[in-house]
Design a binder for these strands. Structure first.
Lengths: 365, 365
DNA sequence: ATGAAAGCGCTAACAT
DNA sequence: ATGTTAGCGCTTTCAT
């Protein structure tokens, strides 16, 4: 049988209300009474039933976190940064993997809402605008991470993917590179011909802010190329699915061409792994035979021969900032601070940093 | 105002019980009624309050997972494997990082218990035997992962660390290596002199099963050494704290010695990273100048020059198996199956696999 | 400072 | 097949 507040009250010869006051460290309790109650609690090994408390208080002290896939360094760092700060404030996190599937994302969102979490941090697939809007209208606190959702007006914390890519490619051009290949990425594998590629590139300026991570990086690449009057070689623009295998496959394709690129810019870490493997298997030396640069710094980037130049994302700060905003929003709700005040959602964009190493130096001769 | 089952009932002109039946897909509802209720639910955007349901059903459909640190590949893989299977059965997971601190672990255990999770999967620090026993006595379902707790009788899923290390070292000896160094690990950094090291080694056979991961691997190392009548060189036995920096520092120490080891066996991936960096900075070539082998396979092990021989843990299966056992235990409780039956806890030990690559081949001449 | 009692939103036993 | 109602364990308002 469960030991409830009632059992404690009876044993301590006080009312349940008094026990409840002691539990919540409510001041209006005589010291001797408090001690008596605490002793009883200890004797009985009583532990409060938070489920009941949550129901009564209409607050669960828990927040939901939906990430793409916790297996990747990017998302596990985000999860950790969120946990670090929320734990400090007494919140626990319910962690979900969307596996980049809109259907799974929707199920998780519903589950979190049904569990009445106090807030949600979501790295969105981009496909559940309707449901997310419904959540927002019902006053669920929500912060988007890394990506926006078209048609959703909501606080968000992003990375400046376009500028990160732009700076990297500009650096390559300054190094003297001309034939610069990009392995861009999209969650769903794009198999695109040159005609459609040109059309895509033309459309890149519309609805800018809702472009996804991979396309943003492509846009930065193109901006640097165009600014320097280099002709776009459409054969050097590839699309992977952000996974290792696609980086491997696409790199082999690039290396098979008659006109090879001088340098490859891979737009995330997993594809970079595959790409480096392909280069290694092709017996090419970096940077002598081919240059290399990739998005996402990693612990092993420095271990590769030679160490790899990367564009480093502020991953920890990304999650941390999102959590801070969420906690503030939650607090404001309980303080009734948000009445008709903050109509405009806050969208923060954090900068990347460029980590120059030896994989991207042109070797003359 | 929250839309409750009561509001739905009134609008649909049925009782709350009927709505509840529809929600739970209870069969005893006429089809026309069900449709009417579902329509109302949809019209009102009603979503069940799981907090209330949990209170009533004394079941939360959530399980707690406490890992050391989600940032490491090992623990994030475990978290993912648990999520994969529990999601399938309708459970959500509350994820906690102990950061290897017994105090944090205890707080998280209490939080999970207070939230009345249906079960807990714990990678224990080993220090909270009393509280864990209290949980078990109160019929909390709990499965230990990767380590046991002294004084706790509980289902567990382990890795055969000793044999993994034993096989690796035996392999090295067969390769012709004699001066084999080990960088062992312990969560708290051990600074140990030779006298205490000898004492520790002598004590290794007592209370075998409660030895922690690092010590188990050391034990396997020693067994292989002893079986082959190689003299133990106590200077070749080092203790790190499983983190990159200690691997780096200890490797530099080893390489500074007059008599250097021929090969270094590093007992986890993070220390291996540091160790490889130290070797690289010392301008030594693997395996010509020094051999290398480490516990934990990684995606980048194959990318290093040369690819690194590793002892691979069945990480995904570790978490998966623990989750399966936990779910079965939870199910059995609701089926009242465990009445005086399974007194003996189930302790599974999964085998490692040896991945031979080029970092551990002695080069003659 | 303490107690009595209502009620959070739901399920399940029982009644019809 | 559907409805009525007690009660899960707690907090909180209102008395005292």
């Amino acid at each position: 049988m469960e030991i409830t507040i009632k059992v404690v009250a009876k044993k301590a010869k006080v009312s349940v209300a008094t026990v409840s006051r002691v539990l919540r460290k409510n001041p209006g309790v005589r010291d001797s009474t408090r001690k008596k109650v605490l002793k009883t609690i200890d004797d009985l090994n009583y532990e409060v039933n938070v489920v009941a408390r949550n129901l009564r208080q209409k607050k669960t002290n828990s927040i939901g976190v939906i990430v793409g896939n916790i297996l990747s360094q990017f998302y596990s760092t985000i999860a950790k940064s969120i946990e670090d700060i929320t734990t400090k404030y007494g919140y626990n996190i319910i962690l979900c993997n969307s596996d980049f599937s809109p259907e799974k994302e929707l199920l998780h969102l519903k589950m979190l809402n049904n569990n009445r979490v106090d807030g949600i941090i979501l790295t969105p697939t981009g496909k559940n605008a309707n449901y997310v809007n419904r959540l927002l209208k019902s006053d669920m606190k929500l912060v988007l991470l890394d990506r926006l959702i078209k048609g959703v007006n909501c606080d968000a914390v992003l990375v400046d993917n376009e500028n990160g890519a732009y700076q990297a490619v500009k650096y390559l051009i300054r190094q003297g590179y001309k034939d610069i290949s990009i392995i861009s990425g999209n969650i769903k594998n794009i198999n695109i011909d040159n005609y459609r590629l040109k059309k895509l590139i033309k459309a890149l300026n519309n609805e800018d802010i809702y472009l996804n991570t991979g396309i943003k990086r492509l846009k930065g690449y193109l901006r640097a190329i165009n600014e320097n009057d280099i002709n776009i070689n459409y054969d050097f623009i590839k699309f992977g699915n952000f996974k290792k295998e696609s980086g491997y496959k696409l790199t082999l394709e690039l290396l098979k061409k008659d006109i090879k690129p001088q340098v490859i810019f891979v737009t995330n870490i997993d594809m970079a792994l595959g790409s480096l493997l392909a280069i290694k298997e092709s017996n090419l030396k970096i940077p002598k035979d081919i240059g290399f640069i990739n998005f996402d710094d990693s612990e092993w980037s420095i271990l590769v021969d030679p160490p790899v130049t990367t564009i480093k994302q502020p991953v920890y700060r990304l999650g941390f900032t999102a959590a801070e905003i969420l906690l503030k929003n939650i607090k404001d709700r309980y303080d009734n601070k948000n009445i008709e005040l903050n109509n405009e959602p806050m969208v923060l964009t954090l900068s990347t940093s460029f980590v120059e190493r030896k994989s991207s130096k042109i070797i003359s001769g």
